[in-house]
């Protein structure tokens, strides 16, 4: 059986977990077994609809206290459940919480683990999974040598599959370990799309010359419904908040569309965005290295190009 961990926040299942369910269901199909999901805590989502993503059953530990994430407690409950259900493969989204618990679960189950996976396992020669390495600059095919396996799948690398089915819900009863982490405050930036969950990202660099010029970028992001990001020099100069910094030492993202405005494309920046499906580069310097990594490029002055781009988007949306 393939067991998929469902991550959630503010009573909503995360998009990355939807993808993890579809990924786990595809592995279950390869292995000829069932795909079942595990939820710790409570959500507002209708759990039977997870069948549409490929889960035949949802095991739920219906306890509000588990809505606060505690890596030690969550890992222990997941490992116990995986043992009880005799799961062969345990799947996580390689997101913030997945990174915190999947390796613990692997240790507890004596399972080999691949994090940052970006493909279905190959079963021709044992059990091999491809993952991104060197910050997205290369791939490695990793053989898991243990009977049990843990895989954390990169966000936006597999996609969501549609099944015409509905999941059954099974409530579990397990003793909950004492909390090791007390959550004292949660500070969510209201009204902003979280960068790591965003399909569309608009990002700015030093080419925009100063924080006072960010309006054109924000207008474009608003027209697209995109999240905003920036390069390291921009966040280091405090033109934009640190949580917007994407790159090797900032956040690594893999949206469907990444629009880079006035960013030259240093190798460290590319390491944070090179898993994006489509990259658009707007830069007045035709020699900017970013053009080599781009799908579409506009050589021109951002202060003219970006407002025209925004207008074209709004026109397209108006005609829809």
């Amino acid at each position: 059986m393939v067991l998929i961990y469902i991550d959630h926040s503010e009573k909503e299942i995360k998009k990355s977990s939807h993808e993890a369910i579809s990924y786990g269901a595809a592995i279950a199909k390869q292995l000829g077994c069932s795909a079942e999901a595990l939820l710790l805590g409570t959500v507002n989502d209708d759990l039977t609809t997870l069948g549409k993503l490929g889960a035949s059953k949802v095991h739920q530990l219906n306890n509000e206290s588990l809505n606060n994430f505690d890596a030690k407690v969550h890992a222990s409950l997941i490992a116990t459940t995986a043992s009880n259900l005799n799961a062969e493969v345990i799947v996580f989204a390689h997101n913030i919480n997945g990174k915190a618990i999947a390796p613990s679960v692997a240790v507890k189950l004596d399972a080999g683990i691949v994090t940052g996976a970006c493909s279905l396992p190959s079963l021709q020669n044992g059990f091999e999974v491809t993952k991104t390495v060197f910050s997205g600059k290369a791939f490695a095919s990793i053989k898991i040598e243990t009977p049990k396996k843990v895989i954390a799948i990169n966000q936006n690398s597999f996609g969501i599959q549609n099944y015409d089915s509905s999941a059954t819900i099974e409530e579990m009863n397990l003793p909950i370990p004492t909390a090791s982490v007390k959550v004292t405050n949660v500070n969510k930036i209201i009204g902003e799309i979280p960068l790591t969950e965003a399909n569309l990202v608009v990002s700015g660099g030093r080419g925009l010359k100063g924080p006072e010029n960010w309006g054109i970028l924000l207008d474009l992001a608003k027209a697209l419904g995109a999240a905003t990001a920036c390069s390291r020099p921009v966040s280091d100069s405090d033109w934009r908040p640190h949580h917007e910094h994407v790159g090797q030492t900032g956040i690594q993202i893999a949206p469907n569309l990444y629009i880079a405005i006035g960013i030259s494309g240093a190798i460290q920046h590319l390491a944070g965005v090179n898993r994006s499906k489509t990259i658009v580069v707007i830069n007045k310097d035709p020699e900017a290295p970013f053009f080599k990594a781009a799908d579409y490029g506009v050589v021109g002055d951002a202060f003219e190009v970006v407002p025209a781009f925004t207008a074209a988007i709004l026109k397209m949306k108006h005609n829809e």
């Binding site: 692997a106 004596d110 399972a111 080999g112 683990i113 691949v114 020669n125 091999e128 390495v133 997205g136 600059k137 290369a138 791939f139 490695a140 095919s141 990793i142 053989k143 898991i144 040598e145 243990t146 090179n274 580069v281 053009f291 080599k292 990594a293 781009a294 799908d295 579409y296 490029g297």
Partner: peptide, 17 residues
């Protein structure tokens, strides 16, 4: 628990439009 079998590089972008 694991071993690296092979590394590979991503296919080069086909060129910017």
């Amino acid at each position: 628990h694991t071993s690296i079998k092979e590394f590979s590089l991503p296919p080069a972008k086909t060129g910017v439009k």
